[in-house]
Each structure stands twice: as structure tokens, then as C-alpha cells.
């Protein structure tokens, strides 16, 4: 009996991602959740500029390619005009926390019933390794070649904590996909996010700490180690807002 295979919500198009890049894992988790909730036929995904801009080739649901930073606004347009659709965005850290910060904050403020899958790999991947808003202090990138400097380039942004302060945010959790145990937790978080969307509870966002072996200059294995040792202390995993918990107590 097959116990593990490609989810239906993914096409047969091979991923273009670099070897060991965890985008591929997160794509699969989202697709598995779409299968399990049986919503592929009523889902629209919005993928903006970034490594995941080609997501329209990989997901079997209807897809829209959005301008850099604007996926939450595009998703708002889709959802507001078709409230019965399931709508998700799949965004990188440069997209969500730099150029798209206003759009991100305002879907939280408005409590848009959409789900944001936010890939935080502390770097701009597609354009070749530049500093992102989530780049850690001291982290070397092509635009922070001497290591990110607090005075010169400011501080990394903790998105889940920020989004949790917005009343319209129903669910905000930070997960990782660095090991099997965390991949399973990440899937549970993604499933909960989509479920809350269906229950019209407001905005759900899952921030996934992710690797970028190529631009970090590390092997896939070492990249996972680097993530655990450097990113997790600054970006603690956990649930930062869960409206269903607040409803209980």
C-alpha cells in the first residue's frame, strides 16, 4: 500500500529549486493540505516575485503571478470578489517583509480570510543572495558583504510577532522544516491555517524558517545546521497568535 507519494495538488513539473532548498518541502506540505481538505478545485494561489515565482507551474490549483510584494493585495482582490474560494499566498522574506510590508500588515489589520505561507530564509534567493529584512546581524550577503551592520542596515524583522499584534490576525505560527519532526509540525500548522480560513476567522500566516544552501554558501546539510544554530535563536519557533485558543479561555 502506498503510504507516501506526490500529492495531487502538485503538477508533474520538476522543481527548479537548488539541491536541498526547502522550498520543495513546503510546496509539498501546502499541496498535501489542499488534498486533505479537498479544496484544490476551489483554491487560487498567488505567488509573487522571488524563487517561488514559478509556483504557478507546480500547483494544480488556479494560480496568479503577482508583482513583488503585492500578493496579499492580489489575494484580497480574489477573496473579496469570490468569498467561497480558498486563497493563499506563497511569499519570500524580501517580498513580504521589505517591499510588501504594507500589504502584509494591512491584510492582518483587515483580517482578510486568506492564508499566507511565508518562507523566511534570511536572504534574497532569486536575485543571487542579497540582504533581506530577515538577514541576521553579522550575516554576510552580497549587499552586506562585511556582515549585516546594525547602524548601517538596521535590524532583522520578526514577522510573526509583528502580525500577532494585529487584531485581524487569527493565527500566526513560526515553524521550520529542518527535520522530520519539524516538517510534520509545519504541516499541522499549515493545515490549521487553511482550516481557520475556511472558518472565516481572519488572516492566518505560517512563517517557515527555510534554507538557501546556494546563497548561504553551505551544503544542504550544513545549511540545516546553520539554520538551527543561527536563525532559530533569533526567530523562535512557536504559535504567536491563535484565535481559537483565545475563544476557549
Amino acid at each position: 500500500m502506498i503510504v507516501f507519494e506526490k500529492p495531487h495538488a502538485l503538477t508533474d513539473v520538476p522543481f527548479h529549486y537548488c539541491p536541498g532548498c526547502t522550498h520543495g518541502i513546503v510546496h509539498r506540505l501546502v499541496a498535501e493540505v489542499l488534498d486533505e481538505l479537498g479544496v484544490e478545485g476551489t483554491t487560487v494561489g498567488v505567488a509573487p516575485v522571488g524563487c517561488s515565482v514559478f509556483a504557478y507551474n507546480y500547483f494544480n490549483c488556479d494560480m496568479i503571478e503577482a508583482p513583488h510584494g503585492r500578493a496579499p493585495a492580489v489575494a484580497t482582490g480574489v477573496k473579496r470578489s469570490n468569498p467561497d474560494l480558498t486563497v493563499f499566498t506563497y511569499q519570500g522574506d524580501g517580498d513580504l517583509a521589505a517591499i510588501g510590508t504594507a500589504e502584509t500588515v494591512h491584510v492582518g489589520a483587515r483580517g482578510e480570510n486568506i492564508t499566507i505561507i511565508f518562507i523566511n530564509n534570511a536572504i534574497y534567493g532569486m536575485t543571487g543572495g542579497q540582504m533581506a529584512p530577515t538577514t541576521l546581524l553579522g550575516q554576510v550577503t552580497t549587499t552586506s558583504p562585511y556582515g549585516r551592520d546594525k547602524q548601517l542596515q538596521g535590524n532583522p524583522i520578526r514577522v510573526c510577532e509583528m502580525m500577532a499584534t494585529l487584531d485581524g490576525t487569527a493565527y500566526a505560527e513560526r515553524v521550520a522544516v529542518d527535520c522530520v519532526q519539524n516538517v510534520r509540525k509545519a504541516k499541522a500548522a499549515i493545515k490549521k491555517a487553511f482550516t481557520l480560513q475556511q472558518e472565516k476567522k481572519g488572516l492566518s500566516i505560517v512563517e517557515v524558517l527555510s534554507t538557501c544552501p546556494t546563497n548561504w554558501g553551505l551544503s544542504p546539510e550544513k545549511a540545516l545546521d546553520w539554520l538551527r544554530e543561527n536563525m532559530m535563536p533569533h526567530y523562535p519557533l512557536g504559535v504567536y497568535k491563535d484565535i481559537t485558543k483565545e475563544e476557549q479561555n
Partner: peptide, 21 residues
Amino acid sequence: LGCAMCATMCPDLVITVEKNV
């Protein structure tokens, strides 16, 4: 073991796992 931990970590959907239950 058919535990699919390999497949869980695979970023490219290379692995299909069968288990005789």
C-alpha cells in the same frame, strides 16, 4: 521500515513509499 522519513525530508518528490500493512 516504510516510515517515509526519507520522503518527508525530500524537497523534490523523488521518493514513493510502500508499506505492506
